[in-house]
C-alpha cells in the first residue's frame, strides 16, 4: 500500500478582516493567497525553503512587535494578519526604494508595477547613493552573472546547494553591503565546482543570472518576450524524463526552463537538458 499522509488539521486565520481556513503548517503567505491577497515577493521561491531575506512580503501580525515576513512565518490559529496596513505598506515602499537605489531592477519582473503601487522613489537617496553596480561576469558560453542586478536573495545559493543541486559552487561571501554571491576566492566559474545545470538561473528573481542567449539578445535589442512561445516537452537525452519548457522566438530556442511543480524535475535540469538543444 502507499502510505497515507496523516490528515492535516485546518486552522482559522484572519486576513484583512476576512476569515480564512488553511491547513496547519501553511505560511502566512499561503493564507494571504487563499484570501486572494496579492503580496509582492522576491526572495521567495516555490521550490525553496523561504529565506525571508528581501522583506518585501512583510505583513502586520497582531501582537507582534515587528512586521512578519509572510513567506516564512507559519500561520497560527487565531492569527490576525494585516497585509495592507500603513505600517506594512511603508516598509514595503522603503524596502523597494532601498533595493532600487542600490541594484539594477530593470529586468526584475513586476518591480516597476510595485514601485508605482507603493509610491517608491529610489531617487531620493541622491546620486551619490552607493550601489552594487559592476560589470557582468561573462566567463563561459552558457550563462552570465550580472551582479549589478543581484539583490542577494540566496535563491541561487540554495538551488546550487543542499536544497537541489548539491554542487555548492557558490556561496554568499563577504558581509553587509559588500556581500556578494561568489565562488571560492571569486575564481571563474570554469575553475569552480559549477556543473552548468542552470538551476540557479531558473530561480533568480531579478535577471542577475541569465542564459547567455538571453543576455546577448538583450544586448542586441532582439529579446522580445511578447514574441516568444513556451512549450513544455520532454528532454531528449537520458531516460529520466525531465520536463523542459522551451521558450521559442523566431523558431529558435532561446531559453529552457522546467515546470516547478513537475514530479520528475521540481524545476531542475542538468547541463544537457538546459543547454543541449543547440543541435535542433
Amino acid at each position: 500500500m502507499i502510505p497515507l499522509q496523516p490528515p492535516r488539521r485546518l486552522i482559522d486565520v484572519e486576513v484583512d478582516g476576512e476569515a480564512v481556513r488553511v491547513p496547519e503548517g501553511s505560511t502566512v503567505l499561503d493564507a494571504c493567497r487563499t484570501a486572494g491577497k496579492d503580496i509582492p515577493t522576491l526572495c521567495y521561491g516555490d521550490t525553496l525553503t523561504p529565506k525571508n531575506a528581501c522583506r518585501v512580503c512583510v505583513v502586520e501580525v497582531e501582537g507582534s512587535r515587528t512586521l512578519a515576513p509572510a513567506c516564512s512565518r507559519k500561520a497560527e490559529a487565531g492569527m490576525v494578519v494585516g497585509t495592507d496596513t500603513a505600517r506594512a505598506r511603508h516598509s514595503r515602499k522603503v524596502v523597494l526604494e532601498l533595493l532600487a537605489s542600490s541594484t539594477d531592477l530593470s529586468t526584475t519582473p513586476m518591480a516597476k508595477e510595485w514601485m508605482a503601487d507603493y509610491g517608491a522613489d529610489p531617487a531620493r537617496f541622491g546620486e551619490e547613493a552607493a550601489t552594487v553596480a559592476q560589470p557582468p561576469k561573462v566567463d563561459n558560453d552558457l550563462y552570465v552573472r550580472d551582479y549589478g542586478k543581484c539583490i542577494l536573495c540566496y535563491k541561487c545559493v540554495d538551488a546550487c546547494g543542499e536544497q537541489w543541486q548539491n554542487s555548492f559552487a557558490i556561496s554568499v561571501a563577504g558581509r553587509g553591503f559588500d556581500a556578494t554571491i561568489s565562488t571560492e576566492f571569486d575564481v571563474a566559474l570554469t575553475d569552480s565546482a559549477c556543473v552548468y545545470c542552470g538551476n540557479c538561473v531558473e530561480v533568480c528573481p531579478t535577471g542577475a543570472l541569465s542564459f547567455k542567449t538571453e543576455f546577448d539578445m538583450r544586448a542586441e535589442g532582439t529579446w522580445d518576450e511578447s514574441e516568444q512561445t513556451t512549450t513544455t516537452t520532454i528532454c531528449s537525452y537520458c531516460g529520466v524524463g525531465c520536463n523542459l519548457t522551451l521558450h521559442v522566438q523566431d523558431n529558435k530556442i532561446v531559453k529552457v526552463t522546467s515546470p516547478h511543480d513537475n514530479p520528475v524535475t521540481h524545476g531542475n535540469l542538468c547541463i544537457k537538458g538546459r543547454f543541449g538543444y543547440g543541435y535542433v
Partner: peptide, 19 residues
C-alpha cells in the same frame, strides 16, 4: 560594517543612514 547583509532593510538601510 557589522550588518551581516542578509536582509535588505539592514543591509542597505544602514548604508543609507550613514550617507
Amino acid at each position: 560594517d557589522e550588518s551581516c547583509g542578509q536582509c535588505v532593510p539592514c543591509r542597505v538601510g544602514t548604508v543609507r543612514q550613514e550617507e
